Amino acid sequence: MTKPRIHVLALGGTIATRPDAAGAMQMGLGADDLVAAVPTLGKIAEIEAETVSRVGSHSLSFDQIHALASRIRALEADGIVVTQGTDTLEETGFLLDLLLDLDVPVVVTAAMRNPALTSPDGPGNLLAAVRVATDPWVRTHAKALGVMAVMLDEVYAAADVLKVHPTRINAFASTQTGPLAALVEDRVVPLSLPVRDAIVTARRRLGNTVPGKASPVALLWMALDEPGGLVEAMLAAPDRLGYRGAVIAAMGGGHTPERATDILVRLAAAMPAVVSPRAGGGPLLEKTYGGPSSEIALRKAGLIWGGRLHPLKARVLLETCLRAGLDRPAIIDVFAAWN
């Protein structure tokens, strides 16, 4: 029986570190090193290993992920596994999900424990990712599942997964939806299929997006008694400090401090400004509360409602929309599908 062909693309991150002379962990391992550390891989798949970069995910760029998506589209394989750092996996995985619409599984994985520690999780996560990419149920439902993240024997939808702890080995979760599948022994146990309507809407609007000009998006966190001084600085600058859009991590179901509301309304007139829940997820309110900083007033004033998207993912989506040249009505349509 022919084994599935799995292409492993390595970007760097904790999974690919090794100690320097002083004992500090540095980027250095490539895809071949990662594969060699898991001899079992050859029993379940034909592995092709490719080192894309040796960069920590905290230093990755939108341009690099667009280039990675182009590379993935060009591959002839039965499944793709991307290894990277955990710092931005929730963002890069979501961006890949927006850019890729493939009939084969695409899995992103990483490690929380570096290779110098006792029981590093990188080899186990890589093995689990390859098992997922070769699994018959996953391959049958690859398009419906979209890009997946595999960490600690659980499978998550890239659109939903979050890094919920900075250091623990169980740092990833899909707090709104739960995992899509779990790995038990050598099996992938299906649990659910994700709701993909919002991704489908975004892809339809984005079309066959080619990597365009970078479109920086500011991330503005609302908090107790926030006066909005950073927004004032953006509005005062002729070039808006280089930003083309903004995501506002709002309180509760979509509220901002009253003292900052007028400034945020002016920001929305100057550039696309998306409201997203600082709580990290869950559909926003649309028509419950009144008052100048309520969801009713903010929506009426022109702020774009980001729905259940975490602010980090809302920023990824807005940057992708702007890079693709979408106008304001199209951007509103894309985000409306998330609420």
Rank of each mutant, 00 (worst) to 15 (best):
L322Y: 10
V189N: 04
K287D: 15
E286T: 14
T140D: 14
V8L: 15
V188Y: 05
A218Y: 07
G306M: 13
T256M: 10
L303P: 05
G254L: 01
P190C: 00
M1L: 14
L206N: 12
L309R: 01
G291N: 08
A77C: 12
A301M: 08
E76D: 15
M251C: 13
T167V: 12
V81I: 09
D63N: 13
T140S: 12
V231R: 05
V155N: 00
R323L: 14
T201N: 11
E50S: 15
L224Q: 14
D327T: 08
V132F: 04
A301V: 05
Q84I: 00
E185S: 11
P238R: 05
G42Q: 02
P166W: 07
N114P: 08
A173I: 00
T88F: 00
A144F: 06
G178A: 12
T40Q: 15
V52T: 04
P211A: 12
D103F: 06
L99Y: 01
D78F: 08
G307A: 02
A171L: 07
T175C: 13
T14L: 02
A173L: 06
L75S: 11
V188L: 07
A223Y: 15
P190S: 05
M251P: 09
A67Y: 07
P211Y: 12
V217P: 06
A16E: 10
V106D: 04
T109I: 06
N125W: 03
A21Q: 11
V200P: 09
G302L: 12
G85H: 00
R204T: 15
W305Q: 14
V35S: 07
L224S: 11
R278G: 04
I332W: 14
T86A: 02
A249W: 03
D153C: 12
H58V: 09
D186R: 10
L102E: 01
V106C: 03
T140F: 10
Y243V: 09
A202K: 06
V130Y: 03
D333Y: 13
F335V: 07
V200G: 07
A297H: 08
G85D: 01
L180K: 01
V82R: 02
T167R: 14
R315W: 14
R308P: 05
D135W: 08
A37K: 13
D262L: 09
L102M: 10
L41D: 03
R299L: 13
G254R: 01
R240K: 15
R244P: 02
A142R: 03
G13Y: 05
L11S: 00
A273Q: 02
D32R: 10
R71S: 07
L235M: 02
M112Y: 09
G290P: 09
E295D: 03
V275H: 03
D63C: 06
A198D: 10
P194V: 01
V155Y: 00
H66T: 03
A24G: 12
I169Q: 14
F94S: 01
D225P: 06
V107Y: 00
P123N: 12
S174N: 00
A22T: 15
D63T: 10
